[in-house]
Design a protein around this nucleic acid. Structure first.
Lengths: 161, 161
DNA sequence: CTCGATGCAAAATTTTTGCAGTCCC
DNA sequence: GGGACTGCAAAAATTTTGCATCGAG
């Protein structure tokens, strides 16, 4: 049985093709940033990404990370996740097919991505009501984990902050 | 027939009572900021609020506005609306009874507040999957207005930016 | 070789904070 | 009169930008 996740190698090829098709250049820094993003199992910030990209290629600068993020976002290879902090989170868009909602745990600060298929219907309803063409939607829930508050740890991997 | 909106005068009294009950002081600056917020018909930024508060009492400083915003938010007299820009919007919480979702028009930049009573169910459904207790939620839709794009103006009051 | 891409540091933007003076209770 | 509040300016924190240099195609 084949692994269900496509290997990073082939996604990196997709990224290279995307760059070329847009007339952008394939640089070592951009590849290092791509790899850093795809090796990260979770949500990350620009600063996280810089640190990891530098571990791969220490010539990567902060400016290049910030200049690469919009490109990666536009290619749909990473996704922007804004939960209303003063900085943005990002994550590799590994296998999202349905709409994802974010649940932010206020006790451990973790962000959970949850399938919310009903959001597609919601978007259509709103669009019809206002005669608007939906571009994107987001549903975010902040919540408390009683288990975590009580024991200091929860089975989702949260740790009290 | 009585007007359906409670007059600002009585809401200001509520604000004064809130301050007193929290052991905070009723200052001219805080009242000016409150008035500026309630006179504003729409969403506003901290900077908007500063400008308007200064028109009422020109001794109001930016720092005081930023220090007053959390107080007003905690009192539920204003509401924070974060649509993922690098600054936050606020609005007077004049008559919100049900949950509000925001529809952000990408053509005119206007933020529309629409009733979304089912949002409670949405949030709960998503949080239930993680056995978490919902604290707050937000639902936002970004959309294009074809009418506005074509004619430069739309019946919802939007103007091309 | 050419022009896009990069690194660096300075700038921009929004919000926060330290401090000395002010004024509410 | 005491302590909370304020204004000011400097500081924080994240992201953007100008410019000289580098390197992909």
């Amino acid at each position: 049985m084949e692994p269900s996740t496509p290997d990073i190698e082939s996604i990196r090829e997709t990224f290279k093709e995307f760059l070329t098709s847009k007339g952008l250049r394939v640089t070592n820094q951009r590849l290092a940033i791509f790899d850093a993003a795809y090796e990260h199992p979770d949500h990350f910030t620009a600063e996280d990404l810089l640190e990891r990209a530098r571990a791969i290629d220490d010539s990567v600068s902060r400016a290049t990370v910030y200049r690469a993020l919009p490109i990666l976002t536009e290619s749909s290879l990473i996704r922007e996740v804004d939960i209303g902090r003063d900085f943005k989170y990002y994550m590799a868009n590994k296998n999202a097919t349905t709409f994802q909602a974010q649940v932010i745990c206020l006790d451990c600060d973790k962000i959970f991505e949850i399938d919310a298929p009903f959001m597609e219907w919601y978007g259509k309803t709103v669009a019809d009501k206002l005669a608007l063409q939906v571009e994107s939607q987001r549903l975010q829930v902040t919540a408390h984990c009683n288990e975590l508050k009580a024991s200091g740890i929860c089975e989702r991997g949260g740790k009290k902050r």
